[in-house]
Amino acid sequence: MIKLTNLTKRYGEKTAVSDLTLAVGRGELFGFLGPNGAGKTTTIKLIMGMLRPTSGDVEIDGLGMSKSAVEARRVIGYVPDNPYVYEKLTGREFLEFIGGVFGMEKQKMESEIRKYSARLGMADYLDYRTEEYSHGMRQKIVLAAAFIHNPKLLVIDEPMVGLDPISARVVKDIFVEFSQNGTTVFVSTHTLSLAEEICSRIGIINHGRLIAIGSKSDLRRKTSEGGGDLEDIFLQLTGEYKKEESILGR
């Protein structure tokens, strides 16, 4: 579903993503982890065609993003790292706009909006302007916007920010349901428990390079200690925690 080939993105002399090659299959729930500034959001924006790669290719469902961006985006539901929405629109209007852009039929759109707003606990707020929303409520609106058109691929950058525990649980369930129904879910997150709990495969990026990829047990084998939970694996593979320790002189 997603095929990244030797993907590189440079900003001047800084390389944000370096020679990234990755393939994610249909129906897979893929977790994309990495420390701050590792290149996760840049990778996601490259996948979405919102950034142009310095070199390399992005292919979505067999369509090259450089040549067939519009067709490729038709199958993607996207949630950005910051849930900015049109503040003067109500939640419902925003969802209707997104549904309209994806060419949804009116009745189907209305039933999907009803379904996801109820599941995410925001039905009572749909007719309020989004400028009145809390961060969590905005996050729910953009999640709902990604879900309603039933995409083949969900690309999600930090889904849990601002969500209460109940909503976080619901979102995890929705991801799993999508995955079971054949939708690929590509989720970038700092919430290691999310990746640990639901992702079938995990990729770890650091300094723009993919340093590890595989199932949790695959990753465990790659660490020197060969054990522990995902947090231990992540800290070992990225090496960030040790650096921190040495700075503090521990």
Partner: peptide, 12 residues
């Protein structure tokens, strides 16, 4: 505004 992502990520 910052909602430009909706258009840039949409099939438009």
């Amino acid at each position: 505004g910052k909602s430009i992502w909706t258009l840039k990520s949409a099939p438009l």
